[in-house]
Amino acid sequence: MKTIYEDLNKRFTMSGYKQQRDDLAFVTVDKDQLVNAITYLKDYHKFTHLAFVTAVDWLEENEFQITYLLHNYELKVDLGLKVRLDRDNPTMDTIHHLWKQARVYQRELHEMFGIDFPGSPGVNDPMILESWEGPPPMRRDFDTKKYSEETYDHRERQHIEPEDHLRKQLYPED
């Protein structure tokens, strides 16, 4: 793993290498170099399998992070590539030309986080949120309760506070 990383590091701008287990490591790559780095790993280091693509909302830092997890069947190791995007303009280059299934992940990230992948087929189509009108629901500033109150009808609660009730019953005049 370390040697693969050293080889990568010569070619690309990388930071924060972390060896999590013997067979798992993560590294952060520059946004502009990510597709090149993945292509290099796939073609030269036999990371032929894309395990998943996922995102994290770093609200306080005003950034999204996308993580690509790649697998090497020969060495039986995983390498995660992390990339940080500006939260105000979340756009990332597509990788569907390397793995066809990437478009499904990218479509999902677009729906749930609002991250755009221009050129990825069907990236604007909804996956599960048909006729959704609110902001992307996986963003951390999405207020689930507020959205549900504004969007759906509710049965009115009949709740009575035990403290008030008990007091009114036991001491009606107080």
């Binding site: 009949q158 506070e161 035990p162 008990l166 019953q169």
Partner: peptide, 28 residues
């Protein structure tokens, strides 16, 4: 009838409603 269940419920799915007589230590 202390209402702790209604308080902890994350979905506001529990309402406390009057059922029995109120007595010391029991809201009814």
């Amino acid at each position: 009838g202390c209402g702790s269940c209604a308080e902890i419920c994350q979905n506001e799915s529990i309402d406390m409603i009057p059922v029995s007589e109120t007595k010391d230590g029991d809201s009814g």
